[in-house]
Design a protein around this nucleic acid. Structure first.
Lengths: 169, 169
DNA sequence: GATTTTATGTCAGCCTTGTTGACTTTCCAA
DNA sequence: TTGGAAAGTCAACAAGGCTGACATAAAATC
Protein backbone atom coordinates (compact mmCIF):
# COMPACT_ATOMS: atom_id res chain seq x y z
CA UNK A 1 0.00 0.00 0.00
CA UNK A 2 2.15 2.59 0.26
CA UNK A 3 -0.43 5.17 0.37
CA UNK A 4 -3.07 3.91 2.58
CA UNK A 5 -3.51 7.32 3.75
CA UNK A 6 -0.74 7.58 6.09
CA UNK A 7 2.16 5.67 4.89
CA UNK A 8 5.66 6.76 5.17
CA UNK A 9 5.26 7.36 1.58
CA UNK A 10 5.23 10.65 0.04
CA UNK A 11 3.84 13.96 1.08
CA UNK A 12 4.00 12.87 4.61
CA UNK A 13 2.89 16.07 6.15
CA UNK A 14 4.56 15.32 9.46
CA UNK A 15 1.25 16.10 11.07
CA UNK A 16 1.78 13.00 13.16
CA UNK A 17 4.60 14.77 14.96
CA UNK A 18 2.61 17.69 16.31
CA UNK A 19 2.61 18.28 20.06
CA UNK A 20 -1.07 17.39 20.10
CA UNK A 21 -0.42 14.03 18.51
CA UNK A 22 2.46 13.39 20.84
CA UNK A 23 0.36 14.22 23.87
CA UNK A 24 -2.24 11.78 22.70
CA UNK A 25 0.42 9.14 22.37
CA UNK A 26 1.50 9.86 25.93
CA UNK A 27 -2.00 9.43 27.27
CA UNK A 28 -2.49 6.32 25.20
CA UNK A 29 0.58 4.82 26.87
CA UNK A 30 -0.70 5.77 30.29
CA UNK A 31 -4.19 4.36 29.88
CA UNK A 32 -3.08 1.30 27.97
CA UNK A 33 -0.50 0.39 30.57
CA UNK A 34 -3.24 0.38 33.15
CA UNK A 35 -5.22 -2.07 31.07
CA UNK A 36 -2.09 -4.06 30.43
CA UNK A 37 -1.54 -4.71 34.14
CA UNK A 38 -5.16 -4.90 35.25
CA UNK A 39 -5.80 -8.61 34.72
CA UNK A 40 -2.61 -9.96 36.30
CA UNK A 41 -3.08 -7.52 39.18
CA UNK A 42 -6.46 -9.02 39.96
CA UNK A 43 -5.01 -12.52 39.99
CA UNK A 44 -1.98 -11.54 42.05
CA UNK A 45 -4.22 -10.08 44.69
CA UNK A 46 -5.73 -13.48 45.32
CA UNK A 47 -2.30 -14.96 45.91
CA UNK A 48 -1.08 -12.01 47.99
CA UNK A 49 1.66 -11.22 45.50
CA UNK A 50 2.40 -8.01 43.69
CA UNK A 51 3.57 -6.87 40.31
CA UNK A 52 7.15 -7.29 41.41
CA UNK A 53 6.59 -11.01 41.85
CA UNK A 54 4.97 -11.24 38.46
CA UNK A 55 7.89 -9.53 36.77
CA UNK A 56 10.40 -11.83 38.44
CA UNK A 57 8.44 -14.91 37.46
CA UNK A 58 8.01 -13.68 33.93
CA UNK A 59 11.72 -13.28 33.34
CA UNK A 60 12.64 -16.49 35.11
CA UNK A 61 10.16 -18.24 32.86
CA UNK A 62 11.62 -16.55 29.83
CA UNK A 63 15.17 -17.50 30.72
CA UNK A 64 15.22 -20.49 33.02
CA UNK A 65 18.48 -20.72 34.92
CA UNK A 66 19.11 -17.00 34.77
CA UNK A 67 21.25 -15.65 37.60
CA UNK A 68 20.27 -13.10 40.18
CA UNK A 69 22.57 -10.55 38.60
CA UNK A 70 20.99 -11.05 35.21
CA UNK A 71 17.59 -10.54 36.65
CA UNK A 72 18.73 -7.41 38.44
CA UNK A 73 19.90 -5.77 35.26
CA UNK A 74 16.75 -6.72 33.38
CA UNK A 75 14.39 -5.52 36.06
CA UNK A 76 16.39 -2.44 36.92
CA UNK A 77 15.95 -2.64 40.66
CA UNK A 78 18.37 -3.08 43.56
CA UNK A 79 19.35 -6.48 44.81
CA UNK A 80 17.74 -5.75 48.17
CA UNK A 81 14.49 -5.06 46.44
CA UNK A 82 14.68 -8.11 44.22
CA UNK A 83 15.83 -10.25 47.09
CA UNK A 84 12.74 -9.52 49.11
CA UNK A 85 10.56 -10.68 46.25
CA UNK A 86 12.72 -13.65 45.39
CA UNK A 87 12.82 -14.78 48.99
CA UNK A 88 9.07 -15.04 49.26
CA UNK A 89 8.86 -16.85 45.93
CA UNK A 90 11.51 -19.35 47.03
CA UNK A 91 9.99 -19.79 50.47
CA UNK A 92 6.60 -20.38 48.90
CA UNK A 93 8.02 -22.97 46.57
CA UNK A 94 7.42 -21.13 43.31
CA UNK A 95 11.06 -20.56 42.45
CA UNK A 96 14.04 -22.78 42.93
CA UNK A 97 17.52 -21.37 43.42
CA UNK A 98 20.37 -23.69 42.47
CA UNK A 99 24.02 -23.07 43.15
CA UNK A 100 25.87 -22.45 39.91
CA UNK A 101 27.56 -25.57 38.56
CA UNK A 102 30.63 -23.78 37.27
CA UNK A 103 30.69 -20.67 39.38
CA UNK A 104 29.38 -21.61 42.77
CA UNK A 105 28.83 -18.00 43.77
CA UNK A 106 26.01 -17.73 41.30
CA UNK A 107 22.45 -18.82 41.94
CA UNK A 108 20.51 -20.06 38.97
CA UNK A 109 16.80 -19.49 39.14
CA UNK A 110 14.07 -21.82 37.93
CA UNK A 111 10.32 -21.93 38.26
CA UNK A 112 9.03 -24.96 40.09
CA UNK A 113 5.92 -26.67 38.69
CA UNK A 114 3.91 -24.60 41.12
CA UNK A 115 5.65 -21.42 39.98
CA UNK A 116 5.14 -22.38 36.40
CA UNK A 117 1.43 -22.82 37.02
CA UNK A 118 1.05 -19.34 38.46
CA UNK A 119 3.21 -17.81 35.77
CA UNK A 120 1.01 -19.46 33.19
CA UNK A 121 -2.14 -18.22 34.84
CA UNK A 122 -0.84 -14.65 34.91
CA UNK A 123 0.56 -14.83 31.44
CA UNK A 124 -2.62 -16.27 30.03
CA UNK A 125 -4.66 -13.45 31.44
CA UNK A 126 -2.29 -10.88 30.07
CA UNK A 127 -2.02 -12.56 26.71
CA UNK A 128 -5.79 -12.75 26.55
CA UNK A 129 -6.09 -9.00 26.58
CA UNK A 130 -3.15 -8.63 24.25
CA UNK A 131 -4.64 -11.11 21.83
CA UNK A 132 -7.96 -9.28 21.79
CA UNK A 133 -6.19 -5.99 21.14
CA UNK A 134 -4.02 -7.48 18.41
CA UNK A 135 -6.97 -9.10 16.74
CA UNK A 136 -9.00 -5.91 16.87
CA UNK A 137 -6.17 -3.86 15.42
CA UNK A 138 -4.84 -6.28 12.84
CA UNK A 139 -1.37 -7.45 11.91
CA UNK A 140 -0.23 -4.27 10.28
CA UNK A 141 -1.16 -2.21 13.32
CA UNK A 142 0.62 -4.72 15.51
CA UNK A 143 3.78 -4.33 13.52
CA UNK A 144 3.59 -0.58 13.95
CA UNK A 145 2.86 -0.97 17.63
CA UNK A 146 5.99 -3.03 18.12
CA UNK A 147 8.11 -0.66 16.06
CA UNK A 148 7.12 2.38 18.07
CA UNK A 149 7.55 0.64 21.42
CA UNK A 150 10.95 -0.59 20.43
CA UNK A 151 12.02 2.88 19.39
CA UNK A 152 10.86 4.18 22.75
CA UNK A 153 13.05 1.89 24.84
CA UNK A 154 16.36 2.84 26.38
CA UNK A 155 19.09 1.33 24.20
CA UNK A 156 20.15 -1.09 26.88
CA UNK A 157 16.64 -2.37 27.36
CA UNK A 158 16.21 -2.61 23.61
CA UNK A 159 19.09 -5.04 23.61
CA UNK A 160 17.48 -7.10 26.34
CA UNK A 161 14.25 -7.08 24.43
CA UNK A 162 15.84 -8.11 21.19
CA UNK A 163 17.54 -11.02 22.83
CA UNK A 164 14.17 -12.61 23.34
CA UNK A 165 12.92 -11.41 20.02
CA UNK A 166 15.65 -13.18 18.15
CA UNK A 167 15.24 -16.28 20.15
CA UNK A 168 11.60 -16.47 19.41
CA UNK A 169 10.37 -15.61 16.04
CA UNK B 1 -2.45 -2.84 1.55
CA UNK B 2 -3.15 -5.40 2.94
CA UNK B 3 0.28 -6.32 2.37
CA UNK B 4 2.46 -3.56 3.57
CA UNK B 5 5.22 -5.84 4.32
CA UNK B 6 4.41 -6.63 7.78
CA UNK B 7 2.24 -9.29 7.66
CA UNK B 8 3.21 -12.75 7.71
CA UNK B 9 2.27 -12.77 4.18
CA UNK B 10 -1.11 -12.66 2.84
CA UNK B 11 -3.66 -15.08 3.81
CA UNK B 12 -3.25 -13.31 7.10
CA UNK B 13 -1.89 -16.36 8.67
CA UNK B 14 -2.71 -15.21 12.14
CA UNK B 15 0.89 -15.86 13.02
CA UNK B 16 0.83 -12.52 14.78
CA UNK B 17 -1.46 -14.05 17.38
CA UNK B 18 0.84 -16.82 18.52
CA UNK B 19 1.74 -16.96 22.19
CA UNK B 20 5.33 -16.14 21.27
CA UNK B 21 4.27 -12.98 19.49
CA UNK B 22 2.01 -12.03 22.36
CA UNK B 23 4.79 -12.55 24.88
CA UNK B 24 7.00 -10.28 22.86
CA UNK B 25 4.30 -7.68 22.87
CA UNK B 26 4.10 -7.95 26.63
CA UNK B 27 7.83 -7.43 27.04
CA UNK B 28 7.75 -4.58 24.58
CA UNK B 29 5.16 -2.86 26.76
CA UNK B 30 7.24 -3.45 29.86
CA UNK B 31 10.51 -2.14 28.48
CA UNK B 32 8.93 0.70 26.54
CA UNK B 33 7.03 1.94 29.56
CA UNK B 34 10.31 2.20 31.40
CA UNK B 35 11.71 4.37 28.63
CA UNK B 36 8.49 6.32 28.55
CA UNK B 37 8.83 7.41 32.18
CA UNK B 38 12.62 7.66 32.36
CA UNK B 39 13.05 11.28 31.28
CA UNK B 40 10.31 12.84 33.42
CA UNK B 41 11.50 10.75 36.37
CA UNK B 42 14.95 12.27 36.13
CA UNK B 43 13.49 15.77 36.12
CA UNK B 44 11.07 15.06 38.94
CA UNK B 45 13.91 13.88 41.12
CA UNK B 46 15.47 17.31 40.97
CA UNK B 47 12.26 18.91 42.21
CA UNK B 48 11.61 16.23 44.82
CA UNK B 49 8.39 15.18 43.20
CA UNK B 50 7.27 11.79 42.00
CA UNK B 51 5.33 10.32 39.13
CA UNK B 52 2.10 10.89 40.99
CA UNK B 53 2.73 14.64 40.88
CA UNK B 54 3.48 14.46 37.19
CA UNK B 55 0.26 12.62 36.46
CA UNK B 56 -1.81 15.10 38.42
CA UNK B 57 -0.20 18.04 36.66
CA UNK B 58 -0.61 16.41 33.28
CA UNK B 59 -4.33 15.99 33.64
CA UNK B 60 -4.87 19.38 35.23
CA UNK B 61 -3.03 20.86 32.28
CA UNK B 62 -5.15 18.86 29.87
CA UNK B 63 -8.40 19.92 31.48
CA UNK B 64 -7.98 23.15 33.40
CA UNK B 65 -10.68 23.60 35.99
CA UNK B 66 -11.26 19.89 36.39
CA UNK B 67 -12.62 18.87 39.76
CA UNK B 68 -10.96 16.64 42.30
CA UNK B 69 -13.54 13.95 41.65
CA UNK B 70 -12.86 14.05 37.92
CA UNK B 71 -9.19 13.68 38.54
CA UNK B 72 -9.84 10.77 40.89
CA UNK B 73 -11.68 8.80 38.28
CA UNK B 74 -9.10 9.50 35.62
CA UNK B 75 -6.13 8.61 37.78
CA UNK B 76 -7.81 5.67 39.43
CA UNK B 77 -6.50 6.27 42.94
CA UNK B 78 -8.19 7.07 46.23
CA UNK B 79 -8.92 10.62 47.23
CA UNK B 80 -6.60 10.30 50.18
CA UNK B 81 -3.78 9.34 47.89
CA UNK B 82 -4.52 12.11 45.43
CA UNK B 83 -5.03 14.57 48.21
CA UNK B 84 -1.54 14.07 49.54
CA UNK B 85 -0.08 14.83 46.14
CA UNK B 86 -2.42 17.71 45.46
CA UNK B 87 -1.68 19.24 48.82
CA UNK B 88 2.03 19.47 48.16
CA UNK B 89 1.40 20.89 44.70
CA UNK B 90 -0.94 23.51 46.13
CA UNK B 91 1.36 24.33 49.03
CA UNK B 92 4.27 24.69 46.63
CA UNK B 93 2.27 27.03 44.46
CA UNK B 94 2.10 24.83 41.38
CA UNK B 95 -1.62 24.19 41.48
CA UNK B 96 -4.47 26.48 42.41
CA UNK B 97 -7.67 25.14 43.88
CA UNK B 98 -10.71 27.36 43.41
CA UNK B 99 -14.05 26.83 45.05
CA UNK B 100 -16.61 25.88 42.46
CA UNK B 101 -18.64 28.87 41.27
CA UNK B 102 -21.90 26.99 40.99
CA UNK B 103 -21.36 24.11 43.35
CA UNK B 104 -19.23 25.40 46.14
CA UNK B 105 -18.40 21.94 47.37
CA UNK B 106 -16.32 21.32 44.34
CA UNK B 107 -12.76 22.43 43.93
CA UNK B 108 -11.63 23.39 40.47
CA UNK B 109 -7.98 22.83 39.78
CA UNK B 110 -5.67 24.98 37.70
CA UNK B 111 -1.96 25.11 37.11
CA UNK B 112 -0.30 28.31 38.23
CA UNK B 113 2.33 29.82 35.93
CA UNK B 114 4.91 28.01 38.02
CA UNK B 115 3.02 24.74 37.70
CA UNK B 116 2.63 25.29 34.02
CA UNK B 117 6.36 25.75 33.67
CA UNK B 118 7.13 22.46 35.35
CA UNK B 119 4.43 20.66 33.44
CA UNK B 120 5.91 22.00 30.24
CA UNK B 121 9.38 20.90 31.23
CA UNK B 122 8.19 17.38 31.99
CA UNK B 123 6.00 17.17 28.95
CA UNK B 124 8.72 18.43 26.66
CA UNK B 125 11.09 15.75 27.86
CA UNK B 126 8.48 13.07 27.38
CA UNK B 127 7.40 14.36 24.02
CA UNK B 128 11.01 14.47 22.95
CA UNK B 129 11.37 10.75 23.33
CA UNK B 130 7.98 10.16 21.82
CA UNK B 131 8.82 12.32 18.83
CA UNK B 132 12.04 10.44 18.23
CA UNK B 133 10.22 7.13 18.41
CA UNK B 134 7.44 8.34 16.11
CA UNK B 135 9.90 9.72 13.61
CA UNK B 136 11.93 6.52 13.63
CA UNK B 137 8.88 4.34 13.13
CA UNK B 138 6.95 6.49 10.68
CA UNK B 139 3.31 7.58 10.49
CA UNK B 140 1.91 4.24 9.54
CA UNK B 141 3.53 2.53 12.49
CA UNK B 142 2.28 5.31 14.73
CA UNK B 143 -1.27 4.74 13.58
CA UNK B 144 -0.93 1.06 14.41
CA UNK B 145 0.65 1.86 17.73
CA UNK B 146 -2.30 4.00 18.71
CA UNK B 147 -4.81 1.44 17.51
CA UNK B 148 -3.33 -1.36 19.56
CA UNK B 149 -2.97 0.77 22.69
CA UNK B 150 -6.53 1.92 22.41
CA UNK B 151 -7.77 -1.63 22.07
CA UNK B 152 -5.81 -2.56 25.17
CA UNK B 153 -7.48 -0.01 27.45
CA UNK B 154 -10.30 -0.73 29.84
CA UNK B 155 -13.50 0.53 28.23
CA UNK B 156 -13.94 3.27 30.78
CA UNK B 157 -10.42 4.54 30.25
CA UNK B 158 -10.89 4.36 26.50
CA UNK B 159 -13.74 6.82 26.91
CA UNK B 160 -11.56 9.15 28.93
CA UNK B 161 -8.88 8.87 26.31
CA UNK B 162 -11.21 9.53 23.44
CA UNK B 163 -12.54 12.64 25.08
CA UNK B 164 -9.16 14.23 24.61
CA UNK B 165 -8.67 12.63 21.26
CA UNK B 166 -11.78 14.18 19.83
CA UNK B 167 -10.98 17.53 21.28
CA UNK B 168 -7.59 17.61 19.70
CA UNK B 169 -7.64 16.12 16.43
C1' DG C 1 49.38 -18.20 49.20
C1' DA C 2 47.56 -13.70 50.05
C1' DT C 3 44.69 -10.30 48.39
C1' DT C 4 41.09 -8.38 45.78
C1' DT C 5 36.97 -8.68 43.28
C1' DT C 6 32.53 -10.63 42.33
C1' DA C 7 28.00 -12.65 43.44
C1' DT C 8 24.84 -13.08 46.68
C1' DG C 9 22.31 -12.45 50.90
C1' DT C 10 20.71 -9.85 54.81
C1' DC C 11 19.78 -6.25 58.41
C1' DA C 12 18.12 -1.68 59.30
C1' DG C 13 15.96 2.30 57.98
C1' DC C 14 13.94 5.60 54.79
C1' DC C 15 10.58 7.33 51.02
C1' DT C 16 6.68 7.41 47.82
C1' DT C 17 2.44 6.10 46.79
C1' DG C 18 -1.00 3.17 47.19
C1' DT C 19 -4.73 1.27 50.62
C1' DT C 20 -8.88 1.40 54.53
C1' DG C 21 -11.52 3.37 58.02
C1' DA C 22 -13.38 7.05 60.69
C1' DC C 23 -14.83 11.53 61.03
C1' DT C 24 -15.91 16.56 59.91
C1' DT C 25 -17.44 20.37 57.20
C1' DT C 26 -19.90 22.28 53.58
C1' DC C 27 -23.74 22.75 50.99
C1' DC C 28 -27.14 21.10 47.35
C1' DA C 29 -31.61 19.28 46.83
C1' DA C 30 -35.65 16.78 48.01
C1' DT D 1 -34.98 20.35 57.65
C1' DT D 2 -32.74 16.63 56.74
C1' DG D 3 -30.29 13.27 53.78
C1' DG D 4 -26.55 12.62 51.11
C1' DA D 5 -22.82 14.05 47.97
C1' DA D 6 -18.32 16.40 47.65
C1' DA D 7 -14.35 17.47 49.75
C1' DG D 8 -10.89 17.38 53.24
C1' DT D 9 -8.30 15.41 57.16
C1' DC D 10 -6.22 12.16 60.49
C1' DA D 11 -4.32 7.75 61.50
C1' DA D 12 -2.49 3.50 60.40
C1' DC D 13 -0.71 0.31 57.32
C1' DA D 14 1.52 -2.22 53.11
C1' DA D 15 4.13 -2.81 48.88
C1' DG D 16 8.02 -2.00 46.80
C1' DG D 17 11.32 1.18 45.62
C1' DC D 18 15.88 3.16 47.77
C1' DT D 19 20.65 3.59 50.52
C1' DG D 20 24.24 1.97 53.52
C1' DA D 21 26.65 -1.45 55.99
C1' DC D 22 28.21 -5.83 56.54
C1' DA D 23 28.92 -11.17 55.88
C1' DT D 24 30.18 -15.03 53.21
C1' DA D 25 31.90 -17.86 49.61
C1' DA D 26 34.23 -18.41 45.61
C1' DA D 27 36.71 -16.84 41.78
C1' DA D 28 40.38 -14.16 39.94
C1' DT D 29 44.55 -11.85 40.29
C1' DC D 30 48.89 -10.56 42.09
Amino acid sequence: MAEGGVGPGSGESLLFLTDEQLRKGIEAMFFAYRGFTADPDRILERYEYGRAHHRAMHFIHRSPGTTVNNLLSILGVTKQSLNRVLRTLIDDGLVESRVGPRDKRERHLYLTPKGDALERELSEAQRGRMRAAYRAAGPQAVAGFRQVLEAMMEPEMRRQYQTLKDGGA
